[in-house]
Structure formats: C-alpha cells, structure tokens
Write a protein that binds this DNA or RNA. Structure first.
Length: 432
RNA sequence: GCCGGGGUAGCUCAGCUGGUAGAGCGUCGGGCUGUUAACCCGAUGGUCGGGGGUUCAAGUCCCCUCCCCGGCGCCA
C-alpha cells in the first residue's frame, strides 16, 4: 500500500474496478454470516467497505480486532452497487487495524450530560464535524472580505489590566503576583492601532465571567472585532452587512453538503444575500414592539423576548440603531441631535437568533469621554491610556464586535451555542 | 443571581397513596452471504447523587447538601 485516497475522492472520482487504498476509522460495523460490512469514515466522508466470506477468513486476526472507531487501513477495488450508501463500495482485499477500539463509549441515544462529559469522543460525530467545517469556511469568508477591502489583521493581547466596559465580569488571573484579567474585548487595543493602520480587525478569544444560563452564552468565545478611523455609523454598518453576507455566501458556495447534514434550510440563508438588511431605530423598535402587544418602557433594553418578537418580523438580519445612552457603554458617542441617544448599532439575526453584532461610533472628544467615565462612576485612572488617544491626534472612528459562535449558530440553525465550538465553556463545565 | 425540572443498571428511562427494584438499548455468547442506528435466540447487569431524620419497614415521606438540564437577567 503506498498512496491513499480520501473517501470523497473515491466517491466522486473513482470508476468501477479501480484499486484504491483508504485509511480512516470504523464508523459502523455489521456482521452478516461470514460477511463483514465496514463503514469507513475519514475527514471527507463515509464509504461502505465489504469483506466477503472467504476474505474474512483470511483476515481472521484483523477482523477480530475490529471495533467502532478503530483506525484502519483498507485496500480494495471499487464496486458500483445501488445497495451501498452513496452508490459505491469497496470490495476489501487488504485490511489492517492500526489502533484498536473496544467498546467505544458513544453508541447512540445518550443524553446531553453524558455526551458533554465525552466531548473529546463526541467531537468525531458527523454533525459536529460538519459544523466545524462550516465554521472554518465562515471564518475564511470573513477574512477574505477584510483582506480584499484593505483592512489590516492585528493581534491584540488577551491578558489585560482592567475592564473595557464597567459592567461585565472578568476572569482574574495571577500575573506574577499582580492581578490581571482575561480580555473580554480587544476594542480599546484596536482603537490604539487605527492611528497607524486606520482599518484594523482581529479574531481573539474573549472571556465573560457572568454566570449566564442561556443557550446563547459561552464563558469563552471567538470574538471578531473591527475598528476604523474616519468611519461613521452608516459606513460601519455597511461594512458589517457586506462582511456578514461575504461569510454567508462563502458557506453557500462551499458547504452545502455540511448544511444538509445539520439539516439547515438553505432558502433562509439565500434570502439574506438577496435583500438589504433593514434598519430601524430604537424608537421605532419600541413602537413596533408595542404594536405587537409587548409591554416595554422607553429606555429599557431589549431582552430575549423582545429580540425574538422583533426579528420574527424580518427575513434578514436587522440593524437596530440609536440607543438610549443609559443602557449603553460610556465610550459610545452621544448624538448631537438628542443627548439621550448614542450612535450605537446592533445586528440581530433572524429566526429568533438575536444579537450577533454590537457596534458604535466611539466618543472622540477628550472632555466628553472623561465626563462619561465619571458619569458611569468608573475610575479615570484606569482609562488613562485610552483617554490619551483623544489627546494626540484624535479622529472620528467606529467599530464593532461579532460573536463568531453566535453567527455560526444562526447560519447552521443550531438550537444551542455549545455545538458551535469544540469545547464549550459554560455553566462551569471545564472537563474535558 | 432568580424561577422551574431532574439525579434509579454502562446508556435512556419506568417505579401510583411507604412493603428492600423493572424495561429498552448496550455488553458478552450463539445464529444468519446485502446489512443501512441490521435482525433473531440466550446470558449479564444496581451501596436508587451524598448525609441525616421519621417508621416495624424509605427509591418512595421530611430536612440539609452536591451535581445536571430548561428559562430569565447580563451580553457577542
């Protein structure tokens, strides 16, 4: 045995009678008299391999070592057969068990708790594999969007001294005897970089120590953030819309098989590409909610129920803009027309998935920013370097953050964010 | 943090008003030359989450505690 083909190559390119070598893992195993059906799985797919009775006798030792998830190398000839899944199978003439697997703990029908305890093995499932392939392609689409529009990718720190926003809870870390924290956002560091690179973006891991108990929260998640000098809100919203569409388009171009294995309704995603994202102001959203019978006071933030009602009115993601300053962070720029509002925007995914992007114009005036910090009862000392940016060549600018797992959850139609990442950290789960 | 549900065989669960446990799946053994989560026959299986209490008797009732799930809040 010398060179190996992938399963997908054999399924798509091989002809009847071709001699091929494959390697992978045992996905299904069925004995039938002296005959053995092995469904082989590799990174690209699954294919049925058949060991006939006389061959099975010859491979006595190998056959006895076979088990679900054992790693194997197979040689044989391609046979077209309607009875085989995919229409093709391998008539096995060579078989070697590389790594045995006795009594694989996942057999089907297990509950969520058991499966999460065995995440390191569950991860091999076709469903999770498909989701991670979609994630890869989504990130590729987003990256390509930034690259082809002259944005610089940068690498901000994860270990930080203090919070970006006052409210969110941070994970403390011992930094050689000093107290440090795991970053919850790269925003402030990206802001420092726009003074040289102008348009910057990054993908980092962000951490939130709030004990959230929802299907949309992770303690540790992949955060895509962007920040650009000279950009106003409209412009930045256009960036968000184009970027999201670029990600969706890439997936529709390259990952249809995977979307099918996760049973995602493709038409829902196609609608996203063919329409402009609707934009409504906070005021309009409140009005709309009241028309739908939702009780909400002006000045209250939207909860899960409100977001659900709101997004169900639209087929595409929608922007909500111009929020009351009271419910948003101190760094958001206050409106010139109405000091009660800030130039902030959220992008809400449809079908009830809710917020996937939060962005804003940043306050660029030193005095105003300082007042806002005091207003929120934060310590200006902690924000000295951040305030410096408003002292030396300040520039109007804006930015946003996108939750990668949230976006993936929506695109893949997941009912829980835990499957949007290999090892979800949530609800105090740390093993494996 | 708050509200609700739940911890019984390796896994998924049943067990009414108290009388010391049961199914399916898995596992093991056997059968079957076309199975698609194969099927058929047989066997195997438990300190009922932990601690304390009431009682002749507790999986079942009471108290404490730990863990898990669903929802809300917080956010991406």
């Amino acid at each position: 045995m010398s060179s190996y083909y992938s399963v997908i190559h054999v399924l798509k390119k091989s002809n009847e009678g071709d001699v091929v070598n494959l390697r992978g893992w045992v996905y299904r195993l069925r004995w039938l008299g002296g005959k053995v059906f092995i469904v082989l799985r590799d990174h690209s797919g699954i294919i049925q391999c058949v060991v006939d009775k006389d061959e099975a006798r010859r491979f006595g030792k190998e056959i006895s070592e076979l088990g679900i998830e054992a790693s194997i190398i197979i040689g044989g000839t391609v046979r077209f057969d309607k009875r085989a899944p995919g229409g093709k199978e391998i008539k096995v003439t060579e078989l070697r068990v590389v790594g045995v697997s006795n009594n694989f703990p996942i057999k089907g029908g297990e509950g969520i708790d058991y499966l999460l305890d065995n995440r390191h093995l569950w991860i091999r499932s076709r469903r999770l594999t498909s989701i991670f392939k979609v994630k890869h392609t989504m990130l590729k689409g987003l990256r390509e969007y930034f690259s082809s529009n002259e944005w610089w990718e940068v690498t901000p720190p994860i270990l930080t001294m203090s919070a970006v926003e006052g409210g969110a809870t941070l994970f403390p870390v011992d930094f050689f005897g000093r107290k440090a924290y795991l970053s919850q956002s790269a925003q402030f560091y990206l802001e420092t970089l726009i003074f040289s690179l102008e348009k910057v973006w990054s993908v980092t891991t962000s951490f939130r120590a709030e004990r959230s108990r929802t299907r949309r929260h992770l303690y540790e998640y992949t955060h895509l953030e962007a920040e650009a000098a000279w950009m106003g809100m409209k412009e930045m919203m256009t960036v968000v819309e184009e970027m999201v569409k670029a990600g969706v388009k890439k997936i529709l171009d390259e990952r249809l098989d995977e979307l099918e294995t996760v049973k995602r309704d493709i038409t829902k995603l196609e609608q996203v590409l063919s329409n402009r994202f609707d934009v409504i102001t906070y005021d309009e959203a409140v009005e709309l909610l009241r028309e739908k019978g939702v009780k909400i006071e002006w000045g209250e933030d939207f909860g899960a129920d409100e977001e659900r009602v709101l997004t169900q009115q639209f087929d595409t993601p929608i922007f909500v803009t111009m929020f009351p300053r009271k419910i948003k962070s101190f760094y958001m720029k206050v409106s010139e027309d109405n000091p009660e509002l800030v130039y902030g925007f959220d992008l809400l995914a449809p079908e009830g998935y809710g917020e996937i992007v939060g962005g804003s114009v940043r306050e660029d005036k030193y005095d105003t920013l300082l007042n806002r910090i005091r207003e929120e009862e934060l310590n200006p000392k902690d924000y000295e370097w951040y305030l410096d940016l408003r002292k030396y060549g300040s520039v109007p600018h804006s930015g946003f953050g996108l939750g990668i797992e949230r976006m993936l959850m929506w695109i893949s139609g997941l009912d829980h964010i835990r499957d949007a990442t290999p090892y979800p950290r949530f609800r105090d789960r740390l093993y494996p």
